[in-house]
Amino acid sequence: MMLLGVQYDEPLKLEAIADGGFSFAEIPYEVIEYGALPTYQKKKGDNRILRVAGFTYPLQKVTSDKLYEIFEACRSYQANYIVLETMNCEQGILEKVVEECSMMISDYRIPIFLENGCGGNDGIGYLHNGYSNVTQLKEIADYCNKICDCPVVGICIDIGYANLLAQNIRSQLNQCSEYLCLIHVNDNGGRCNEMQMPYTFTKGRGDLVTDWYHIVGELIRMEFGGWCIFNAKGLFKRVPEVLQTQYIRMLHAIGEEWERQFTFVERILNQPDKKLILFGAGQMLWDYMETFGEKYPPYFAVDNGRNRWGTEVHGVPVKSPDAILEVPEEARNVVICCMYYDAIGTQLRQMGVRYHEFQDQYFV
């Protein structure tokens, strides 16, 4: 399971983060440095606690003294990690600091996550820098961990930065899977660093500029269990304060949807005491069988198309939807396996059948 949070930055309110459903806020350390972190005011009777997930800080400004200062702040605020931002950053800074401070870093054992980055700005476009590719990040992490004699340096991937460089984000995630500890989640159109919420930008006939379905699918395949922090600062610079909580709730809903997909196999398919029935005998059934069919074979499939009744698709017998009712409720596990989720969901509810959905975009 991922650990979800939101990056704080003015004008976003800490109260909006908590009221929107999140338990963690990631804080730019410069906010602490300048004494600008506001006091979080809980509502009367609210038992929730808003915790500090971690701190971010520009790698360009890191010195041994500054790292010590941030470590101490992590202890004071019970923060879990430090993210070092590499936007427009020169190479070699972290290695030098680690060489000077290896004993201190080993003693604190507070994880340091090196973020991918790039060079340039919205006015002139973006170019690769020494932290753009995960191969470079892995080499730096390896070097630092060997010096510290412990695995204290990991990788943070900012999806928005990777998208600006038109990188294959799924491949980047896969290549650094053993080092990957945190995902910074934001969206852009591939040209400017808008830092908006996921699913914001489309092209052509509605295709996503950032392929969120397959990005999440790759994280599922990796069994990613680290931090997922929404850092949509561009969004909250434009949203009226009165709407902040509602947008945070949308981000929380996105996080919950992704978590449901992370648990889909164990939560829905891994029910050996029930008969799996798939509703739909089209392309999505083929996709399901290619992905999960060997380990979680369906008992049978049903379809509204009469011409498919009595046939087999990918070795699965296809029947009328009424066949679902022949299986006792406590013994059946019905999963919609068709793109017409709403219509089929209505049909199943009218039949008195409980169901789940196979969202193939994440897995195929």
Rank of each mutant, 00 (worst) to 15 (best):
P198G: 08
M222C: 14
E223V: 11
Q196F: 15
H184R: 03
T200E: 10
E194A: 15
E223T: 11
Q196E: 11
C181F: 10
L173G: 03
H214Y: 04
N186S: 08
G190M: 03
L180V: 02
W227A: 01
S177D: 13
N193T: 08
T200I: 10
D211Y: 01
Y213A: 06
M195W: 07
H214T: 09
D207N: 14
F201Q: 01
G225I: 09
G217Y: 05
G189Q: 03
I215H: 03
G226D: 02
D207F: 15
Q172I: 09
N186F: 07
C192L: 15
D187N: 03
L180P: 01
Q172Y: 06
C192R: 12
G217E: 05
Y179A: 08
M195Q: 09
L219E: 00
Q175L: 12
V185W: 14
N186P: 01
E218Q: 09
T210L: 06
N186H: 05
Y213D: 05
N186E: 02
D187K: 09
M197H: 12
I215S: 01
R191Q: 15
L219T: 00
L180R: 02
G225M: 11
G204T: 09
R221E: 11
G204V: 06
Y213S: 09
T200W: 11
Y199N: 11
W227L: 01
L182Q: 06
D211F: 12
V185Y: 08
P198I: 08
C192F: 14
Q172V: 13
Y213R: 10
E194S: 14
M222W: 11
E194Q: 12
N193R: 13
D187E: 02
P198W: 05
N193I: 07
E194D: 12
E218H: 11
T200F: 15
G204M: 10
C181G: 12
D187A: 04
D207I: 13
W227I: 02
Y199M: 08
E223I: 13
L208M: 03
C181L: 14
M197I: 15
I183H: 07
C228E: 06
E218S: 13
T200H: 12
H214R: 03
M195P: 06
I229D: 00
G189V: 05
M197K: 11
H184T: 03
G217C: 02
L208I: 05
I215A: 00
N188T: 04
T210Y: 07
P198S: 03
Y179N: 02
G204Y: 04
G190D: 03
H214P: 08
I215E: 01
G226I: 07
T210G: 06
E218F: 11
D211L: 13
E178S: 15
S177N: 06
T210V: 07
F224C: 02
E178V: 12
K203C: 14
L180H: 03
P198D: 06
L180I: 02
C176A: 00
